[in-house]
Design a protein around this nucleic acid. Structure first.
Lengths: 204, 204
DNA sequence: CCATTGTTTGAATTTCGACTCAAAGAATTG
DNA sequence: CAATTCTTTGAGTCGAAATTCAAACAATGG
């Protein structure tokens, strides 16, 4: 028995491919995604890509999963690293949620991948999960603020959190789509103004 | 001179092709768009499609233009046909701005086409123009309400209008992407709640 | 150091859809 | 109706990218 043969580090290779695919999608878009690009970016042959991902859709789904994970973690980190003051933390959340420019690659990638959601249940699930987690972050921030008396919420934390995430998504969509009327700085100001309004916290 | 030959109704044919292309995009997505599908939907041969649109991108741009135009007109109509009461009119705008279901084809089409904006200036321009016109509609509604004393605006009509459009876009994106946590009815309620908050108009 | 199995390659093949084009069909003018 | 030009067709060509595959290349166990 036990002819192990050669149990290589498949996970490492897979990880490299996912990262390479993300890069390729960022550069040429989902539509223009070619196996060759992924292979080149990862420094392997086309055959290797297919060896690990006979179904290319699985790879794209993995890219999506990775992007969602990375994004949520970065926001969680922004929240945790901000000073404990609820207003500061809420502001940190807002700052971490908008694309800094039309070239912001993580946001660009996420919007690209979200488009698949209408057609693919797997992607829809990831988008749903991202939304839920972002709502969770905002909810917590709002509730802590309310509990400490810094915020006076205009509605349930849940509802307000939904609104903030949707607002961010709307502005973000316009930013990455190069709508000249929506500049990142302006979007940030408007989201903050909205946050100020619904929390009754002037120091935001 | 003057051998007119056969000046057919090119515009009618073009219009038919644009409509057929819109249908094809709705069904298979921008990525999967094939000349054959357009031809089939229009009931002509592939050659004819190329005869009128040697550059397929031009056709897609035309689809986008048509979708934007149709959407803006439908909202304008919704606004005009509502009773003159500012609150009723604002509500009509909100109602006409959200997809009624994940299958809403006009909204679906628009989100699909907006994705090209990041990569194509022509599409970016259309998206920008749509945004500006929607903002215009909301601005007017808000200003009329403020002038008649029905609304008490929490900020400039411009800024509030931006916020309402972005909010709609954000929720709309989740709806067409089949995010189960964002139901059309709920989204509508939340947008209205936001409108109520920023206008101080309880009867909204 | 040989046997076994996992991995990688790249050339050959297949697939699919865009694009070409010559010929046929239709409207208009005179 | 003859001449002219616009329109339509669809079979054939072309090219790009996916997919296959047999052979070469490790790593590990014994």
């Amino acid at each position: 028995m036990s002819k192990v043969g050669r149990p290589r580090n498949q996970t490492a290779r897979r990880q490299a491919l996912v990262s390479a695919a993300g890069q390729a999608i960022t550069e040429r878009g989902l539509e223009g995604l070619r196996i060759k690009d992924i292979a080149d970016a990862a420094g392997v042959s086309q055959g290797s890509v297919l060896y690990y991902y006979p179904e290319l859709d699985d790879l794209v789904l993995e890219v999506h999963r990775g992007a969602v994970e990375g994004f949520v973690e970065s926001r969680q980190r922004a929240y945790d690293e901000a000073a404990a003051d609820p207003a500061v933390r809420l502001r940190a959340l807002v700052d971490s949620g908008l694309p800094a420019s039309p070239e912001d690659s993580l946001h660009g990638l996420l919007y690209q991948l979200h488009r698949r959601a209408g057609r693919s249940p797997g992607h829809a699930e990831l988008m749903t999960s991202l939304f839920a987690r972002e709502v969770g972050l905002y909810s917590t921030a709002l509730e802590v603020g309310a509990a400490t008396g810094v915020f006076t919420l205009a509605a349930s934390a849940q509802d307000l959190a939904h609104g903030l995430v949707a607002l961010e998504d709307g502005y973000g969509l316009h930013i990455v789509s190069r709508n000249a009327a929506v500049r990142p700085e302006r979007a940030r100001e408007l989201v903050l103004a909205h946050a100020r309004a619904v929390t009754g916290c002037a120091s935001l």
